[in-house]
Amino acid sequence: MRHFLNIRELSSEQLTHILDTAESFTSVDGQAVKKVPLLRGKTIVNLFFEPSTRTRTTFELAAKRLSADVLNINIATSATTKGESLLDTLFNLEAMNTDVFIVRHPESGAADFIAKYVAPHVSIINAGDGKHAHPTQAMLDMFTIRKLRKDFSYLSVAIVGDILHSRVARSQIEALNILGAKEVRVIAPRTLLPASVEKLGVKVFQDCKQGLHDVDVVIMLRLQKERMQGAFIPSEHEYFQLYGLTPERLALAKPDALVMHPGPINRGVEISSEVADGPQSVILQQVKYGIAVRMAILSLVISPEQNGAAIES
């Protein structure tokens, strides 16, 4: 596996291998192991064209625990920034003998684009591109689910909220389908659903009550404030009334259903504090597992000897 750009090009075996490798980087309590010398002497660049706290810091921690050198580069970008300068930036960094670029970019396809032009010895990990994909987030979500529920084939998973603008949702849907989840549901008003979403392998619900019925996992998505301006929804209030995850609504799911959220959460907009901080919430565990999963992905792109038979270039 030279690059890690999106989920849909990977097989169930490859995804499972990533999860197993992540498992090997965790101690019994699920914490990532403190330090291994696997990537000593390697240089990893966090190349972020868009602000991020969680993803950048967990990647940084993951790289450091693998003993790699880490460089953080935040590039303020605008819609007018042209590809020419993007490639120039890339070639300049490449010249510093780097091994991996972890790329976050506001445009869909940016990581694919960079991967096409990067030097052959450099790997690209997609840390979120536009509305396209956020595959490492999806993998840490899968890791969390597997850690707590073992077998995907019994699971009904509901993803609730702004699917249209969510790269996380797209990658989750792909991962859940590839890993063989029993059912993947999306729950949202039509304004927040992408065209032909059912063809992505999901069952579509506009009604939260029907959609949440008997599910094993509820994944809530963040609602961006600017969606009101785009006339996607009338108000946060009405959104919460219809789609906000309250204890009453969560009671429609299986009694032990997991509550997940890629963060950062908007309390009182898509999720009530009682649920976010409640016993079924695994939101902070997701963050914790993020380090081990990112260690696994880094080690798999960077050191070929780690690549099991299941993962090919």
């Binding site: 396809g109 396209h132 065209a195 063809k199 992505l200």
Partner: peptide, 12 residues
Amino acid sequence: EGLTSSRLGLPG
């Protein structure tokens, strides 16, 4: 706007 735009996360 269709399945491909939805999959790629590009505005359709």
